[in-house]
Design a protein around this nucleic acid. Sequence first.
DNA 1: TTTTGTCTTTGCGCTGGCGCAAATAACAAA
DNA 2: TTTGTTATTTGCGCCAGCGCAAAGACAAAA
Lengths: 233, 233
Amino acid sequence: MKMDPADLRRVNVFKDAPEEDLKLFVEKGIVRSIEEGEFFFFQGDPAAYFYVLIEGRAKLLQTSATGQQVNLRTITEWQMFGALGAVRENATYPATAQALEPSTALAIESSFLKEMMQNRPYLNINLMQLMTSYIMEMQERYRELATERVERRIALTILRLAAQIGKRTEGDGMTVELPLTRQDVAEASGTTMFTVSRVLADWERRGLVAAGRERVVIRNPHGLVQISEGLDQ
Amino acid sequence: MKMDPADLRRVNVFKDAPEEDLKLFVEKGIVRSIEEGEFFFFQGDPAAYFYVLIEGRAKLLQTSATGQQVNLRTITEWQMFGALGAVRENATYPATAQALEPSTALAIESSFLKEMMQNRPYLNINLMQLMTSYIMEMQERYRELATERVERRIALTILRLAAQIGKRTEGDGMTVELPLTRQDVAEASGTTMFTVSRVLADWERRGLVAAGRERVVIRNPHGLVQISEGLDQ
DNA sequence: TTTTGTCTTTGCGCTGGCGCAAATAACAAA
DNA sequence: TTTGTTATTTGCGCCAGCGCAAAGACAAAA
């Protein structure tokens, strides 16, 4: 697979990188394609590479001692992931990265990013901004999980996922489509498959979404926002 | 209050700062002392300053729309907090900082830190390491909240708080003391005051802790670790 | 078309943990 | 010592959401 260095500028961290830096990253990078369900890396592996997703979608998940999973983040095209290894010495990935659909990513050695950061302030600034956005999102989600009931959490999750990985589909009105299983949504909202199924069925009755196999179509975003804010009853 | 710049080196982010940088920070800083229960800043305020806690303890909390609170982090002496404003433009604090006991902090303009970061790689590196540690801790706590039952979460919370803000007390064996209300523990572990009270009462019966008013003394750390790992029954 | 595997739905029972309320305990101020 | 305030405990009832099991729906492969 050939990659145009200029494409890398779509990655937020590289948005103001000079052409020659982009070239270096592309040259240093290895393109890796994996199938749906396969893994870019596992939690606990030495974090030797960071990745830029070029095509597809993926999720970052953590597994508990008992094997239960939670979804920490979903990754879409031109997002960077697994970059913590460039900051900490001898780091291991704190999460597992799994493809939600056939996906391609550029893998670049963490040490190279680290080296580049030595004398490129833009990399530092952008990476820090990325990190602060993670911190804020995680803090918010933590609060939600601690204080909100399931229905609201699911609404918040669906809206967040729609913003992150949703694809606009034409058709009647504005709809957003998400290629997610009930299990995925459950893991992202801190509940179970069963509860997600029941909540979605209810929403479908109320005309808010259309739920299919591995698919959620948002028909009425405003209604979902209302639920997420607790304004519905 | 007079401050020795060299003291600032106890702040992890400043651990390898040259003397003259420390002086600049101290000169630029304003020392602020507040009483227990008072606030350094509120969620939503413009993040114009970052803080270094010099004395006392504080907590970072987030409030939901319904007024429920969650504790995101506890802060102890020589920790930096409220620094996200130095990274993002026109940022507001994503959390509220409240003193757990009479506390003193050095407040420094975020813009000054930002300026200093322009040409001081050590600041960038150290700040990024701090951020990655937050990210990892939040991810872990998120997973715990999503997958573990209350008793385990409370055990994990108490152990974490002991490591963060616990004070070793002499006396019979090794004990760690935490000046926290049941409410504080509840907000840090995502449950209610009542449940914390019941769990602590149970642990007290089993000799693991001694619980008093605004106080938890860990008598048997190993026992708590066992509970936190689910090895007890 | 049939088969196979996976994902989803739904009924049902159960319980962990919430939340109220009232009593009690600990501390502080007067 | 008394009074007031705030933190804590405990009993009690309840229900949101979990988890199993079994059936149903869908998609891809044969």
